[in-house]
């Protein structure tokens, strides 16, 4: 309880501090370069200078924090990747060499690629289907709300939820995991699902699909609703049926949004960590890059060089999407 009070006090101090910073720095600027009461040329020169400085006052805290926490680490990681365990001895490319020959790394890359193929595809597909269907029925908003709900659940919480579903009891005893109960009900044999290589990864992916479908659905639903009614009405008059309208008229008009949803989920998948840690901790061939990196941060006292190399791999995989995003944003700004 004590540190909750400490936290609340921090909130107050933090907000007040930020407010005071902005207020005081602006006041200082106006004092240093007065224009309200100054006359003529001096006033206008001061005003010009103040206006050149003020944006940087507004952005200074953000720039400092972003530099220290996001920009500097990228550079530092590159530097670390050429250094040993503690980040002191220069070891050249040996971390990279280790990475290329390490079977666990290869396993992680393969798994990550599988995740990249399956999760965005399934989430987008289900999201699109639900968005399209739910808009046609009167209780669609309730349905969407329920499917959106897993978005609020932490990956760890979701892992517990699904671990319970995948739970395994030996054949003959009553299954308490829903999946095995269904399998047994239809006359099959129960399995310890999360220990079967390859398929266990798929079972982990299901968790992320379960979470992300709601996200895809919300975005795509908005995109579908923004399609001009006239184009659909025109297609109806042209004699297209429901499916044709959906695939030939509506989907082509929201390709851009589908791409955004897809890439957003892709980035998330690259960083997936909590689910694997909670469900298998990388056992039974389910290792992924983010979890592998986390392990190397602490394994054997921690190996910062190898950890940094893995982090760089994740970063490199994100870069194409980053460039695409920046490109799009710049076009919007124009």
């Amino acid at each position: 309880m004590g540190h909750l009070v400490y936290a609340l006090v921090t909130v107050v101090i933090g907000l007040a501090g930020a407010a005071i910073y902005f207020y005081a720095s602006n006041l200082l600027l106006d004092r240093a370069l007065p224009y309200r009461d100054a006359e003529g040329a001096r006033a206008s020169r001061n005003l010009r200078r103040a206006n050149a400085i003020r944006p940087w006052l507004f952005m200074l805290p953000a720039i400092v924090i972003l530099s220290v926490y996001l920009v500097y680490p990228v550079l530092e990681s590159i530097w670390l990747s050429f250094h040993g365990k503690a980040g002191i001895d220069f070891v050249g490319l040996s971390n990279y060499h280790w990475m290329l020959v390490d079977p666990e790394f290869r396993e992680s890359i393969v798994n990550n690629l599988l995740w990249l193929l399956i999760v965005p595809a399934l989430s987008t597909f289900f999201g699109l289907v639900i968005a399209a269907l739910a808009d046609r029925i009167w209780w669609g908003n309730i349905a969407k709300s329920l499917i959106f709900m897993p978005m609020a659940i932490s990956f760890v919480g979701a892992s517990v939820i699904w671990k319970f579903i995948y739970d395994f009891r030996p054949a003959g005893s009553e299954q308490i995991g829903l999946l095995n109960a269904v399998v047994v009900f239809f006359g099959g044999n129960p399995h310890a699902w999360i220990t079967i290589p390859f398929w266990n990864s798929v079972f982990l992916m299901v968790i992320l699909v379960w979470i992300q479908t709601g996200f895809a659905m919300v975005i795509l639903s908005a995109a579908l609703r923004s399609i001009p009614d006239e184009t659909i009405e025109a297609a109806v008059i042209d004699g297209a049926n429901g499916l044709q309208i959906f695939f030939k008229i509506m989907v082509p008009q929201i390709w851009g949004t589908i791409a955004v949803v897809w890439t957003t989920i892709t980035i998330l998948v690259l960083k997936v960590f909590d689910i694997v840690l909670a469900m298998t901790n990388g056992q039974w061939d389910t290792q992924v890059l983010a979890n592998l990196m986390f392990e190397w941060m602490f394994r054997g006292g921690g190996d910062f060089g190898r950890g940094a190399v893995i982090a760089l791999v994740i970063m490199v995989l994100v870069v194409p999407i980053m460039i695409w995003n920046i490109h799009n944003a710049r076009q919007e700004l124009r």
Binding site: Y69, L70, E76, I310, A311, I326
Partner: peptide, 20 residues
């Protein structure tokens, strides 16, 4: 553009340098 780029920087990137 920098802000848009930073949107997708994986936070794994920051862990080790920040820990140090």
């Amino acid at each position: 553009a920098v802000v848009v780029g930073l949107l997708v920087v994986p936070l794994q990137m920051s862990l080790i340098p920040l820990l140090r």
